[in-house]
Write a protein that binds this DNA or RNA. Structure first.
Lengths: 341, 341
DNA sequence: CTGAAAGCGCTAACAT
DNA sequence: ATGTTAGCGCTTTCAG
């Protein structure tokens, strides 16, 4: 019904011009206090709301930052998003979220939409399928700041906020060794994704440090889903010399294995120890509760956003490529606490 | 660096006008096929992308729909969002998500942002704190379609997509009775939220139907968090005549209770049966796995979005207030399967 | 089938 | 301290 009120409506009512209104609304110092007050009062009364579409078109900024994640229902990503939102809000920015479900096609669609809607920056964690990067290069070609978090495109010279995954899994595996486990298997993910490659590396390093020979049979690649965990553990336990502990690059996959083991009569942590990765909330719900690696997801989100704002505030000259690596933290729970022998 | 290319750039290159380009790009039938081809080829070549800010300003539509949820990391809401996105994408719309963490202040901020950015519609599931509705009325006053899902403002005459929560909990509680449980307690949520009031009602109805007297001591109001579940069960088990089953209006709260019971020596489902609500993914991870009520979250999202599109496509004359109620589904798992006596 | 012209609502030089 | 003016990039009558 009622058309929405514009600054020129307000201008007419106060017998002044749109520029004055525009300035007054944004508290421009050159507008008299009395005028500012009159304007803001009228605005409130008439229920005026800036039309961002117009303001943004004019100013060339959308005041929006686009975030691309594989899954929004993972605690890890949900927390990252919260962190991003928190600092974005402070700067007056909106956050629009796009979930790819790990599909590269969806990822491309997201980018297209973001470019069309002129987001001022893109923060992205790439999907499992993502092994080509034209769509991401596109963003940079358009001169839109691109920042990676967690799962990054390493060939890119964009900034990235990541965990030290090598360290995280090093700690996880070392912990298992400390608890007396001898044959530790790993659920590893796609090698072209940095985090999974690094988690495997940490595993290798930990074994190496203790002089334990790597048994390739204990390195299982899968897609890290719950179901994959079930299938993989089934295979592992068929081995002539099965593992006595599992280090999983994902909590979901760890739980799949845990479940299968329990229903098949294995005792956890007595017979088999398990460590997951990401510290999803459910890891503390299940029983035995699952030892996992916390990634400081909220901070990761905050840093990612902060990096973006630092970037656009810098004179674009001193574009310091300060990529950041956050130390993860081992959270020890029941699934790996074997009484020492 | 390179300014982004506009339709007038393309127009110049082809010695034509912006109107022609604009039409050609959108496959307007009055433009010759050959011209359309020339334009789309050049556009591709020059890497042209519509500037939605400009297009939207002009057309008065933002092609964006705003979604407000309490928590994005809940499977229920994440799935609703997926459903919304799915149908929105088909219609060429973007979805922007705002999470309130159940805070009314955040909810208000979301609305403000949405109104400023001129979303074409708002889909909302209100927070636990929300007991006043000025901010939501505001949306309708601005003539922006407002659609509720799951947690609704009942005083509003807006459309809403909900579950039949009375039926859902009726089934859950009846199932417990069928399994031989006699004293069933309920974890109930804030009474001003439709879903929690309805879930309590279903509980009452189920007991009533079997002629079981209601014991007020078994009706526990809390905020339905994990911690609340722990506290509440602790209190319940102190009763002279403690319950032998729990019907929880939330999976999280149910798990809290489940955990406490297990660590305190109670056997589930033998000593105590538990049923949760929402069918969060972790309910099948934990042990015993948790019987719960599935809410067809994906469908709820799809319907919500569909309702929005139906609405804006109708000539705004036949605004049929067709609110929809979806039947939930009881998912029976271990936590409630007591061997019949 | 294509062009000319107006304008969506706002901001920001450049006046005054 | 305020007003004038000129667009931002696109869509859409209205004319040919």
């Amino acid at each position: 019904m009622a058309k929405r009120v514009t600054i020129s409506d307000l201008a007419k009512e106060l017998n002044t011009t749109t520029s004055t209104i525009s300035r007054a609304l944004r508290n421009h110092p050159s507008i008299s206090i009395s005028m500012r007050k009159k304007v803001s009062e009228l605005a409130k009364q008439r229920n005026y709301q800036v039309n961002s579409m117009a303001a943004n078109l004019r100013s060339g900024k959308s005041m929006t930052i686009g975030v691309i994640v594989p899954h929004i229902n993972r605690d890890f990503f949900a927390n990252v998003i919260s962190g991003i939102e928190e600092v974005a809000k402070k700067e007056g920015y909106s956050v629009v979220i796009c979930q790819t479900k790990d599909k590269i096609e969806k990822e491309k669609k997201c980018i297209e939409t973001f470019l069309r809607t002129r987001v001022d920056g893109v923060l992205v964690s790439v999907g499992l399928e993502t092994d080509t990067f034209d769509h991401l290069d596109q963003v940079k070609k358009m001169n839109v700041p691109l920042i990676f978090f967690d799962r990054v495109q390493e060939s890119s010279n964009s900034m990235s906020i990541v965990n030290d995954d090598v360290e995280g899994s090093f700690q996880g595996v070392s912990h298992l060794l400390d608890e007396g486990y001898k044959r530790i298997a790993i659920f590893a993910g796609p090698e072209h994704i940095n985090i999974y490659r690094n988690r495997k590396q940490g595993y290798l390093n930990a074994l190496d440090k203790r002089g334990i020979k790597i048994d390739k049979k204990l390195i299982v690649f899968n897609n890290l889903s719950y179901d994959a965990g079930v299938e993989s553990i089934k295979e592992l336990m068929k081995l002539q010399n099965p593992p006595d502990a599992i280090f999983s690059s994902s909590d979901y996959c760890a739980v799949g294995a845990l479940h299968w083991l329990k229903t098949n009569g294995y005792k956890i942590p007595e017979d088999i120890g398990i460590v997951g990765y990401s510290n999803e909330k459910f890891t503390s719900f299940i029983s035995p509760s699952l030892t996992s690696i916390d990634q400081h997801s909220l901070e990761m989100g905050r840093y990612s956003a902060k990096t973006f704002f630092d970037l656009i505030k810098s004179d674009k000259k001193d574009i310091i490529l300060n990529s950041l690596s956050i130390n993860p933290k081992l959270i020890i729970r029941e699934s790996s606490k074997r009484k020492r022998i």
